[in-house]
Write a protein that binds this DNA or RNA. Structure first.
Lengths: 155, 155
DNA sequence: ACTCTATATTTGTATACACAAGTAATGTAT
DNA sequence: ATACATTACTTGTGTATACAAATATAGAGT
């Protein structure tokens, strides 16, 4: 009898702790999200880019001087949901990229990094240590640990 | 002589590893950020709320039936940068909150949760376990660990 | 060749956000 | 009392985002 009773209490407590710890994680992720944006946005803005624009430029550099098509860019972006067309428009406006219809499959658009875009990326790279500086509250090992945990979280 | 040389290499390697680990952390935080939003947004949308609207309602419940003024709401929100005025407007539109000019200091606005708002919160609460379910890739202990690390990261 | 479906990108629209400027009430110093 | 600064919230504006619908090309089956 008392066994059943205590089990119930334990279950209840366990459930409660359980819920609260994951809730704390969720709130923490949202806070951190916001904090990261506040660190990162002004950094890229100082270089005349948004985070996503820089992200796309980096993807383009990965294949440079080969082109990358829209779909591939979309797949590789951290933020999948955003509108690649209009992002690329901005980069072309600024002279950092070019677009051409792919002759092999005319539905596809080939996007290439320009020399100017490459220079901009190198300029940003030089400044990068200043950005990473802001993550130094965590040790080298802790940074690796958190990365691994986040990978695991997303499954 | 060789000592100096090897030291240089070690420094260089260390520097490189260092940089890459923090870079990986940054990219990982951005990816996770996006992933969390994709888990959370549809959940709240299914209840006719945005994440931020729910966040404000929770803050209001914390003081209920006492009012909370705009400034306090802004301070307590996860995303500090958003526009509280227009957020509250939405909640009032939906009948979840009320606003009154504070008689003690007529610059301030007192926001209160309505009965309807309270019911909506309870409805969301009941469904919460379904949301937390998505974080179960991490064990209880890992969830706590990551929370602590994120706290440390933000300083 | 013709229709149907799938793929790849674009456009439209409503909503959200960031930042700056604006308004209104209060406090403070002369 | 009057002028100036500060606080607390609001509004305006351009940009960004989410989601859905539209276009345009390619491939597959008949």
């Amino acid at each position: 009898m008392w066994h059943v009773y205590t089990m119930r209490i334990e279950d209840e407590i366990q459930q409660k702790d359980f819920k609260d710890d994951y809730r704390r994680l969720l709130v923490n992720l949202l806070f951190t999200n916001n904090w990261v944006n506040q660190q990162v946005m002004p950094f890229f803005r100082a270089h005349g880019l948004t985070l996503q624009q820089h992200n796309v430029l980096s993807i383009l550099r990965g294949q440079h001087p080969e082109p990358v098509c829209f779909g591939d860019i979309q797949c590789r972006m951290a933020d999948r949901s955003s509108n690649v067309t209009r992002l690329i428009d901005k980069l072309i406006e600024k002279g950092y990229a070019t677009r051409d219809i792919c002759q092999a499959n005319r539905r596809m658009i080939e996007v290439r990094l320009t020399e100017k875009g490459l220079q901009k990326l190198e300029e940003v790279d030089e400044d990068m240590p200043a950005l990473y500086q802001r993550f130094h509250n965590l040790s080298h090992e802790e940074a690796v640990l958190v990365s691994n945990m986040l990978d695991k979280l997303r499954g």
